[in-house]
Simulated assay, not measured.
Amino acid sequence: MALDVKNLVGGYSQVPVLKDVSFDVHDGELVGLIGLNGAGKSTTINHIIGLLTPFSGTIEINGYQISQNNAEYKKQIAYIPEIPVLYNELTLREHIEMTIMAYALDREQAWNRAHDLLQTFRLDNKLEWFPVDFSKGMKQKVMIVCAFLTDAKMFVIDEPFLGLDPLAVNDLLNLINDRKQHGCSILMSTHVLDTAERFCDRFVLINDGQIKIEGDLAQIKGAFPNAGDSLNNIYLSLAKGEA
């Protein structure tokens, strides 16, 4: 099991945002983290990637806990944030070099992989450019390239489709599927529910800092029989307080 979250209580102040949150992500699995704005998705992700410290509960990735082995825990994770985080003074080439150093990757192998990713996302002629000046979609592609350049076993992806053109969305989904086939695990937060419905293996629905339900699409539909026959309709029912 790649990710195991148990009885997580946490947040940004003394008042917890997350209330006894438990769920898991298995090896080779894509799990969609679904919920309204303010439901606790970003807070959950920030705890998983180590930006927040739990009030109580545990988060384990491939047997590592951040409190016990910070370096090994973080080496397991590649993170793609909703808002790209780039450095003003670094070119695209230097962003890639920094990723290689941060993850202690074999340089030759990493650059071979990087060139393939750059070609896939049509960035191979922009190595000497400064990504901070790119469009939103191009910045997102830089974050994707840097994440999938690594040997991470656990990918945490927050709203990856915002700003991406349809071709880039397809390229990203192909990358995710390839990594799944190699045993990697992906936790993806998204509001693009028609895509999530087609590609996610399971879903974690979070509402008001608590897990509403965890399961595959059939289990989710079964839990909300009056909400409609799609993830989008179930989501709308949650938004209206009908589910």
Rank of each mutant, 00 (worst) to 15 (best):
L51G: 08
R93S: 10
I34T: 01
Y73A: 02
L193D: 04
Y79F: 13
L149A: 03
T91L: 05
G50N: 04
S189G: 04
Y235S: 01
I83H: 08
N62F: 01
L18A: 00
E108G: 12
I213G: 03
V85N: 14
I49H: 05
I213R: 09
F130A: 07
Q181M: 12
I49K: 06
E214F: 12
V145L: 10
G63P: 00
H47Q: 07
G63A: 01
L167A: 12
L162A: 14
L193W: 08
I48G: 02
K126H: 13
G11L: 10
L3R: 02
F203C: 08
L173H: 13
E128C: 14
I213Q: 05
Y79K: 05
I83F: 09
A114P: 06
C200N: 05
D106F: 05
F121L: 14
I59D: 08
G40I: 04
D151E: 09
L162I: 14
I157S: 05
G215P: 00
F203L: 11
Q210V: 13
D165A: 07
D116P: 12
L236W: 09
I211C: 04
A147H: 01
L172Q: 04
I77Q: 00
C184Y: 04
I66Y: 03
L187R: 05
F130V: 11
R107G: 06
N125Q: 11
I83W: 07
N177E: 11
A114N: 04
I144K: 00
E72D: 12
L30V: 05
A239I: 00
I49T: 06
I176A: 00
L205A: 04
M138G: 05
C200W: 01
L164S: 02
N174I: 09
N70Q: 13
Q109S: 14
V85K: 15
L86D: 12
Q68P: 00
F130D: 03
D178G: 07
Y87N: 09
G10Q: 00
S237N: 14
I49N: 07
C200Y: 03
T44R: 07
I100T: 03
A239D: 01
S230P: 05
L172K: 09
D158K: 02
F161M: 08
F224T: 01
F199V: 11
L86R: 15
C200H: 02
V5R: 02
C184A: 15
L187F: 07
L236H: 09
I220M: 04
T195V: 14
L52T: 07
L187V: 06
Q76C: 00
I49F: 11
V31C: 08
K221F: 11
G35V: 02
I80P: 00
L8N: 00
D208G: 08
V132F: 10
I234E: 03
V192G: 06
P84K: 11
G50I: 04
S185A: 14
N46W: 06
A196Y: 01
D201W: 06
I59F: 14
Y12V: 07
M154Q: 08
D20S: 06
L238A: 03
L217Y: 03
P166M: 06
L52I: 10
L52Q: 13
L175P: 02
L18E: 00
G137D: 10
M98W: 10
F155C: 02
A39L: 03
P225Q: 15
G11Q: 04
L30R: 02
G209T: 02
N207E: 12
V15S: 10
D171Y: 13
G163H: 10
E82G: 03
